[in-house]
Computed example of a mutant assay.
Amino acid sequence: MTDATTLASRSCEACEKGTPPLDADKAREMLQQLDGWNIKDDGRAITKRWEFKGFLKAQGVANLAAAIADRQGHHPDIRFGWGYCEVDFTTHAAGGLTENDFICAARIDAALA
Protein backbone atom coordinates (compact mmCIF):
# COMPACT_ATOMS: atom_id res chain seq x y z
CA MET A 1 0.00 0.00 0.00
CA THR A 2 1.48 3.35 -1.03
CA ASP A 3 1.46 6.41 1.17
CA ALA A 4 -1.14 8.07 -1.07
CA THR A 5 -3.34 4.98 -0.81
CA THR A 6 -2.99 5.12 2.94
CA LEU A 7 -3.98 8.79 2.98
CA ALA A 8 -6.93 8.13 0.68
CA SER A 9 -8.26 5.45 3.02
CA ARG A 10 -8.29 7.79 6.01
CA SER A 11 -11.11 10.11 7.06
CA CYS A 12 -10.89 13.73 8.09
CA GLU A 13 -11.18 14.64 11.74
CA ALA A 14 -13.12 17.74 12.69
CA CYS A 15 -10.93 20.76 13.39
CA GLU A 16 -11.87 23.54 15.73
CA LYS A 17 -10.62 27.09 15.84
CA GLY A 18 -7.14 27.03 17.32
CA THR A 19 -6.16 23.69 15.77
CA PRO A 20 -2.45 24.07 15.00
CA PRO A 21 -1.42 23.93 11.33
CA LEU A 22 1.25 21.51 10.14
CA ASP A 23 4.78 22.88 10.23
CA ALA A 24 6.49 23.40 6.86
CA ASP A 25 8.60 20.22 7.10
CA LYS A 26 5.60 18.00 7.82
CA ALA A 27 3.60 19.66 5.02
CA ARG A 28 6.42 19.02 2.51
CA GLU A 29 6.68 15.42 3.74
CA MET A 30 2.96 14.85 3.24
CA LEU A 31 3.04 16.59 -0.16
CA GLN A 32 5.42 13.89 -1.38
CA GLN A 33 2.60 11.38 -0.87
CA LEU A 34 0.44 13.20 -3.45
CA ASP A 35 0.65 13.38 -7.22
CA GLY A 36 0.89 16.79 -8.83
CA TRP A 37 -0.17 18.92 -5.86
CA ASN A 38 1.82 22.01 -4.90
CA ILE A 39 2.12 24.13 -1.78
CA LYS A 40 0.99 27.74 -2.18
CA ASP A 41 0.18 30.83 -0.10
CA ASP A 42 3.40 30.63 1.93
CA GLY A 43 2.62 27.08 3.01
CA ARG A 44 -0.99 27.69 4.03
CA ALA A 45 -2.62 25.76 1.16
CA ILE A 46 -2.15 23.01 -1.40
CA THR A 47 -3.34 23.26 -4.98
CA LYS A 48 -3.68 21.15 -8.10
CA ARG A 49 -4.69 22.00 -11.65
CA TRP A 50 -6.07 19.51 -14.15
CA GLU A 51 -6.28 20.38 -17.83
CA PHE A 52 -8.73 18.90 -20.34
CA LYS A 53 -10.10 19.46 -23.81
CA GLY A 54 -13.56 20.84 -23.28
CA PHE A 55 -15.82 21.94 -20.46
CA LEU A 56 -17.74 18.87 -19.25
CA LYS A 57 -14.68 16.98 -17.99
CA ALA A 58 -13.59 20.05 -16.01
CA GLN A 59 -17.07 20.37 -14.54
CA GLY A 60 -17.05 16.66 -13.69
CA VAL A 61 -13.77 16.94 -11.77
CA ALA A 62 -15.04 20.04 -9.96
CA ASN A 63 -18.23 18.18 -8.95
CA LEU A 64 -16.27 15.10 -7.87
CA ALA A 65 -13.85 17.18 -5.77
CA ALA A 66 -16.76 19.02 -4.16
CA ALA A 67 -18.62 15.80 -3.33
CA ILE A 68 -15.56 14.05 -1.87
CA ALA A 69 -14.59 17.05 0.23
CA ASP A 70 -18.13 17.68 1.45
CA ARG A 71 -18.50 14.06 2.60
CA GLN A 72 -15.35 14.66 4.67
CA GLY A 73 -16.71 17.93 6.08
CA HIS A 74 -14.01 19.87 4.24
CA HIS A 75 -14.64 22.65 1.74
CA PRO A 76 -11.96 23.57 -0.82
CA ASP A 77 -11.88 26.46 -3.21
CA ILE A 78 -12.69 25.12 -6.67
CA ARG A 79 -12.33 27.00 -9.96
CA PHE A 80 -13.15 25.54 -13.34
CA GLY A 81 -13.86 26.59 -16.88
CA TRP A 82 -13.28 25.45 -20.41
CA GLY A 83 -10.30 23.11 -20.25
CA TYR A 84 -9.30 23.30 -16.58
CA CYS A 85 -10.19 22.63 -12.97
CA GLU A 86 -8.21 23.91 -9.99
CA VAL A 87 -8.69 22.82 -6.38
CA ASP A 88 -7.14 24.49 -3.33
CA PHE A 89 -7.27 23.02 0.16
CA THR A 90 -6.55 24.79 3.42
CA THR A 91 -8.00 24.40 6.90
CA HIS A 92 -9.41 27.77 7.89
CA ALA A 93 -9.80 26.78 11.56
CA ALA A 94 -6.05 26.11 11.69
CA GLY A 95 -5.00 29.05 9.55
CA GLY A 96 -3.03 26.68 7.32
CA LEU A 97 -2.60 23.07 6.34
CA THR A 98 -3.70 20.06 8.36
CA GLU A 99 -3.72 16.36 7.57
CA ASN A 100 -7.34 16.80 6.43
CA ASP A 101 -6.17 18.77 3.39
CA PHE A 102 -3.86 15.96 2.32
CA ILE A 103 -6.47 13.28 3.00
CA CYS A 104 -9.01 15.01 0.75
CA ALA A 105 -6.41 15.60 -1.97
CA ALA A 106 -5.43 11.91 -1.89
CA ARG A 107 -9.10 10.85 -2.02
CA ILE A 108 -9.66 13.01 -5.11
CA ASP A 109 -6.57 11.58 -6.81
CA ALA A 110 -7.66 8.02 -5.98
CA ALA A 111 -11.13 8.65 -7.40
CA LEU A 112 -9.63 10.00 -10.63
CA ALA A 113 -7.04 7.23 -11.01
Rank of each mutant, 00 (worst) to 15 (best):
I46F: 12
I103V: 06
C85V: 01
E13D: 07
N38S: 15
H92C: 01
D101R: 01
A27I: 05
R44V: 02
A110H: 07
F102S: 01
I46A: 10
Q59S: 12
L112W: 05
V61L: 13
G36F: 05
R107I: 03
M30H: 11
I78L: 08
F52Y: 14
T91F: 13
Q33F: 06
L64C: 07
M30D: 06
N38V: 03
D23G: 12
A67S: 14
A62Q: 03
C12L: 01
E16K: 13
V61F: 14
E13I: 02
L22A: 06
Q32F: 00
D77Q: 11
E16A: 15
R10W: 03
A94M: 05
D3M: 06
E99M: 04
D109F: 00
I78Q: 07
G83Q: 09
R79Q: 15
Q59V: 12
L22Q: 03
I39Q: 12
A45P: 00
D109Q: 14
F55Q: 05
G18A: 10
D88W: 15
E99S: 05
Q32V: 02
A105P: 03
H92M: 07
P76H: 13
Q72P: 00
A65V: 09
A14P: 03
H74D: 00
R28T: 08
G18S: 09
A67K: 12
N38Y: 07
I108G: 05
L97P: 02
A106Q: 00
L31A: 10
L64E: 05
